[in-house]
């Protein structure tokens, strides 16, 4: 890699002997990209560990009160959960395509892939909104506010520890939802930079790292979906 700068001075844009996007403390574009990517993976690990805490809470309480979890989880809307899974998987595809296109210098296609990702993330949140409000209407709140009423939810009031399931459900999907909102902000910013032509096949670190973050949000949902809705 050290030979890159020596053998490829053709990319000069200023009086400096390196491309404009290359920071001085890196030997080459390649090294800068690798460092950024490793940093991103380290960040993603902290994200995984953040969610791991909640997955552990889920595992412990499910193991303690399996009957409460079974009774409570059937009141979640499996259909909406499945649709949201497909929506997020599709958004992962579009963000992967945006990286594919930017690597081939097809900025316009890359831009529209990111916009599609943004739209799908929006769809996900809208569906989530309807799911949440359907629960709130029947007094299904996290924590001490839990007060189920209405035909489908009335029996839940008599099952001990059912509130525990909904607290875990709201906290896990809520924090996941916050990640979706943050991801939308980042994707919007990166899409605007792609539109302005900041990236191309020689430099697309930001697009790649945004993609990694978005895929992680998808992976978290891949586990939340069966755990909360299906089993």
């Amino acid at each position: 890699m050290a030979t890159d700068t020596a053998t490829a001075p053709a990319t000069t844009e200023t009086d400096h002997d390196h491309p404009a996007h290359l920071e001085h403390h890196f030997v080459s574009t390649e090294q800068q990209f690798d460092s950024a990517k490793l940093g991103m993976w380290l960040f993603l690990i902290t994200e995984i560990l953040l969610f791991a805490g909640m997955f552990v809470a889920y595992a412990v309480y499910r193991q303690w009160h399996p009957e409460a979890f079974l009774e409570a989880s059937v009141t979640l809307d499996q259909f909406l959960g499945t649709v949201n899974t497909i929506v997020l998987l599709t958004s992962s595809l579009t963000v992967a395509l945006s990286i594919h296109y930017i690597q081939k210098d097809e900025q316009s296609k890359s831009f529209w892939s990111l916009i599609a990702t943004l739209a799908l993330a929006g769809v996900f949140l809208v569906i989530k909104y309807f799911e949440y409000t359907a629960k709130f209407e029947h007094g299904i709140y996290p924590g001490a506010l839990f007060d189920p009423h209405g035909a489908k939810y009335e029996p839940l009031a008599n099952i001990p520890y059912v509130a525990q399931f909904f607290s875990i459900y709201f906290v896990m999907t809520g924090i996941h939802g916050v990640h979706v909102v943050v991801g939308m902000g980042i994707i919007a910013w990166i899409a605007s930079r792609v539109y302005r032509g900041h990236f191309g096949s020689d430099y697309f670190t930001h697009v790649e790292l945004t993609g990694l973050y978005w895929h992680l949000v998808d992976i978290i949902w891949i586990f939340l979906y069966p755990m909360l809705y299906l089993v």
């Binding site: 390649e30 499996q78 499945t82 497909i86 599709t90 992962s92 395509l97 594919h100 081939k104 299906l230």
Partner: peptide, 28 residues
């Protein structure tokens, strides 16, 4: 760019996406 970046072919991305959708259907 010594080795360059691997560009994952569109065909592979779509294939993986298809598998993910199928697996979602199976688990549902």
């Amino acid at each position: 760019m010594s080795q360059g970046h691997h560009i994952i072919p569109q065909r592979v991305l779509l294939g993986v996406f298809g598998s993910l959708i199928v697996l979602t259907g199976v688990t549902y």
